[in-house]
Each structure stands twice: as C-alpha cells, then as structure tokens.
Amino acid sequence: MILNPAKLLAEAEQHTGLNDYGDDSFPERFTIAMAQLQKLGMDESGQQAAAKVAVGLVTSRLSFFNDHKTIPGLADEVIERPLFATGEPRSGTTLLHALLSVDPAAQSLRFWEVMYPSPPPGLARPDDPRRALADDDWREINSMAPDWLKIHPYNDMLGDGLPECERTWAMDFRVMTPTAWWKAPIGMYVGGMPVDAHAQYRIHKMMLQHCQYCPDKIGPAKKHWALKGFHGPRLKAFFDTYPDARLIWIHRDPVQVTASRIGMAAALTKAFARGKVDVSEQASIHLAATRAGIQDTMNNPLVDDPRIFHVRYKDFTGDPVGTIAKFYAFAGYDFTPEAEHAMRDYLANNKGDRYGKFVYAASDIGVDIAELNDEFAPYRERFGLDVEVR
C-alpha cells in the first residue's frame, strides 16, 4: 500500500534523523489522514504524489519541533498585540490582510516561511534558496490553476505571498489546503480531519515565534504581526492563545459570499483534481459551510468581545484605508503617514481585476435566492448589511 502511514512516518524519520513529533497524538491523526486520502480512489501516480507531499510535511514538522527544542531562546519569543483580519471567505479579508501587511511597522507570515520553516526564517539571508524554491512552487500552482489569479490576484506575489493562518496547520494534518497539497490530485479537500482549536493555535503561535526569532537583528523595534485567518468559529481558543490580540471582522451578504465561494471552489477543484468538477456538489458543500459559519456567528457570545472591531463589507470596499485607520485607533496603534502612503500605493498599483474579472452568480447556489435572503435576514440585520445586488 502506497499510503501506508507507518512506512511514510518511518521515511520522514530516516530522512531527518528525528522522531519527536511534538504531539503524542500525531501518528494517530496522520493515520486518519492517510485513510481519508485512500478513500478518494486516486490512481497509483496520484497516490505516489500524495505520499511525497505527506512525507514532506512530516519532515517539516520534525525539523520544526526540533528547532523549538534545540535553539536557545526560540520558544521564549513573545508575541505582543498581534492584529488579525477575519470574516467569511470571499468577504474582502485578503485585500485587508495585504493592506495591513504593507505598513512598515508590521510583519506578516510569508508563504516561503510556512512552506519551508526550518531553520527559522529570521536567520535566513536574502539569497536563502527557500525563497526561490517557494517562488517556483507558486509558478507551478499558478500554471495549474490560472483562474486562481482572477479569483485571488495576490498569488502573483509567489513565495513572498501572504498565507492564511490555517496554512500553518498543514504539517499538523488538520487541514489539506491546496497550497500544501497541489501536487496531489485531491482538489479542494474539505473536512474529515480531527479538529482541536487549542492545539491548532499552539502550532500557529510556534510558527510566529519561529519567524520572529532573530537574536542578532540590529535595527528598529520589533514589528507587530498582521495576520489573516478564519478565526470566527474558534474564538475561545484564539483569545486564549492571543489575549492581547485585536481582530477586525468584515461582514458581507452571505448569499454573495456563498456564490463566490462556489465559483472559487469549482475552479480550484477542476484544476487540482485534474478533471471535471460537479458544480452542484460544490454548491452543496459551500452553502452548508456558509450556513455553519453564519450560525456560529449568531450564536457565539464571544462575537461581542470588546477586542473585535466589526466592519461592513461595503464600508471597507468603499474606503479601505479609512477603515483601517479606524481599526488602528480601536487597537491602540498609531496610523502613521508612512502606513497610509504604503496602503494607498498598494491600492494604486495592485488592481483587483489585473488578471481579469472573476465572474460568479447567485444562481449557481442552486436554491431559491429569495428564501435564502430570508434565511440570512437576522444576520444582515445584526450587522447592518443590505442585500447585495450584483
């Protein structure tokens, strides 16, 4: 059997000379992940590709945890007052993240850092080969999924692009994000993996420590973190891990969120699964995901936590920089002229449709839109949203 978990773990251990996974439950979780992959019915070449990805992620994990054990001071790095962007998928959070990241006083994770995290990226020289390796990875991804640049033009940043927080969990085998699994023909893989929010944020915080670590750095004071992820369903663990964090949350009409999600998922599934895609199946998956997210938002008392700054999508898209200035004031950060200039420069030079316009339609959801509008009316009322007409 190609996707034999014991053999794959042994291969990673032999490659690294390490066997401490930093979590006693990891081998069991890895076994579950391999079983999920076996259910997908990949041919032999697909299984070989998946096995290679799996071993690569396990190898990264072993080296990552070994760094934290053996490098003096790494585990003592303090993550102070980080800023996070969140919201339902397709609600403008990636643009928000990009703008937060260009503030000269901010630091953000980069794809090359989370794809190849060991040794700590803060120790890397400008010519570190991991940068070029991640650039090549992204050229391959973009060539496989050219529509992704229409959907997500920020992918043109290649290895220097901005990963979502969930990408730090790829080596924990709790998610199978396309940016880790594009070499395997598994499409947009959703669900089926064990979830433990506190364990996931433990990995996330370790990654921030990993990328912040640079004991010999000479220069300005430490920068604040500017990050993005889908933190709404995990607010308890999020704030337990980052009690001094501030979170800006964009709210958009859930019907348009769902339609855009379906269009994105259909395009990426077709690209990465190397075949046809059932749009109605993707519609069912992503309508259910939106419903679950909205239900959690409506029922979770932590949504009203005073550390969260809620924003309407139309207000953010109407005045992105002004919205961020208000968020900085809320978070107790200075909105400097340098930050404003960098953000306005980014907007002027990175048009959202620079690779073509991403077109999607509410009709792709496959249900009665009037009924769906009624279903989401309480959410829109709570956050002051109008029905978005496109």
Rank of each mutant, 00 (worst) to 15 (best):
V195N: 09
A237D: 06
I250F: 09
W112I: 06
S108D: 04
V175G: 04
F230L: 10
K183T: 06
D196R: 07
M176I: 01
F230W: 12
P129H: 07
L133G: 01
M171W: 10
K228V: 01
P233G: 09
W112S: 01
L162V: 00
L208A: 13
D127R: 08
I250E: 02
L149E: 02
F173P: 00
M206R: 10
M157G: 03
V175I: 15
M171Q: 09
F111M: 10
P117C: 14
D156E: 13
P117W: 01
H224V: 04
P194R: 10
A184P: 05
A245Y: 09
D137R: 09
M115H: 08
P220M: 06
K228E: 03
W138C: 07
M188E: 06
G187N: 05
K183G: 03
R234M: 12
I248W: 04
L162C: 05
A197M: 11
A226C: 13
G187R: 09
H152D: 14
K183E: 11
Q200C: 08
E140T: 11
R130D: 07
G192S: 15
E113M: 15
P117N: 12
K183N: 10
R234V: 11
I248L: 14
C214V: 02
I186S: 01
W148M: 14
D128G: 07
M144S: 03
P120F: 04
A124H: 13
A134H: 00
H224S: 13
D135A: 08
Q209K: 05
K222N: 12
L123W: 12
N142V: 07
P119R: 01
Q107F: 08
I203Q: 07
I250A: 02
H231P: 01
S108V: 03
R139T: 03
I203T: 09
P117V: 08
A145C: 09
P163N: 05
A105D: 15
M193G: 04
G187H: 00
M206H: 11
P215I: 11
D103K: 06
P194E: 09
D135H: 15
M144L: 14
L235V: 00
E164Y: 08
R130V: 00
K217S: 15
L247F: 06
